[in-house]
Simulated scan of single mutants.
Amino acid sequence: MENRKRSGLGRSSEGGFRKPEGGSQGGAKKRYFAKPTPPGFEKASKPDIVFGVQSVLETLKGTKEIEKILLQRDFGHNEVEKLAFERGIPVQRVPLEKLNRVTMKVHQGVIAFVSAVNYAKISNVVADVFEKGEVPLLLVLDRITDVRNFGAIARTAECAGVNAIVVAARGAAQINADAMKTSSGALNHLPVCRENSLWQVISELQQSGIQIVACTEKATEELYNIDFSIPTAILMGSEEDGISENLLEQADYSTKIPMVGKIGSLNVSVATGVILYEAVRQRNK
Score class of each variant (00 low, 15 high):
residue 5 K to M: 14
residue 6 R to C: 10
residue 7 S to R: 15
residue 8 G to I: 03
residue 16 G to P: 05
residue 16 G to M: 08
residue 18 R to H: 03
residue 19 K to P: 07
residue 24 S to E: 01
residue 25 Q to M: 09
residue 32 Y to V: 12
residue 37 T to A: 04
residue 38 P to V: 01
residue 43 K to G: 03
residue 44 A to C: 06
residue 49 I to S: 02
residue 50 V to P: 15
residue 56 V to C: 05
residue 57 L to E: 01
residue 60 L to T: 01
residue 61 K to I: 00
residue 61 K to H: 08
residue 63 T to F: 05
residue 63 T to A: 02
residue 68 K to F: 14
residue 69 I to H: 00
residue 69 I to P: 03
residue 71 L to M: 11
residue 78 N to R: 00
residue 79 E to D: 11
residue 84 A to I: 05
residue 89 I to H: 04
residue 94 V to S: 14
residue 95 P to E: 01
residue 96 L to G: 14
residue 100 N to I: 01
residue 103 T to W: 13
residue 104 M to R: 08
residue 107 H to A: 02
residue 111 I to F: 06
residue 114 V to F: 14
residue 116 A to C: 11
residue 117 V to W: 06
residue 117 V to F: 01
residue 117 V to G: 06
residue 121 K to E: 04
residue 122 I to R: 11
residue 123 S to Q: 13
residue 126 V to M: 07
residue 129 V to M: 00
residue 133 G to H: 12
residue 135 V to D: 02
residue 136 P to Q: 10
residue 142 D to I: 07
residue 143 R to L: 03
residue 147 V to I: 13
residue 149 N to E: 00
residue 152 A to V: 02
residue 159 C to A: 11
residue 167 V to D: 01
residue 168 A to N: 06
residue 168 A to G: 04
residue 172 A to T: 05
residue 174 Q to E: 08
residue 175 I to N: 04
residue 180 M to Y: 08
residue 183 S to H: 05
residue 183 S to R: 07
residue 188 N to P: 14
residue 190 L to M: 04
residue 192 V to H: 01
residue 194 R to A: 05
residue 194 R to S: 09
residue 196 N to H: 13
residue 205 L to F: 06
residue 206 Q to R: 12
residue 211 Q to N: 08
residue 213 V to W: 02
residue 214 A to D: 00
residue 218 K to C: 01
residue 219 A to P: 09
residue 221 E to S: 11
residue 224 Y to C: 13
residue 225 N to D: 14
residue 231 P to V: 10
residue 241 D to S: 07
residue 243 I to N: 02
residue 248 L to F: 12
residue 249 E to W: 10
residue 250 Q to W: 09
residue 251 A to F: 10
residue 253 Y to M: 08
residue 258 P to Y: 03
residue 260 V to P: 10
residue 263 I to V: 11
residue 263 I to R: 11
residue 268 V to F: 04
residue 268 V to E: 00
residue 275 I to H: 06
residue 282 Q to A: 01
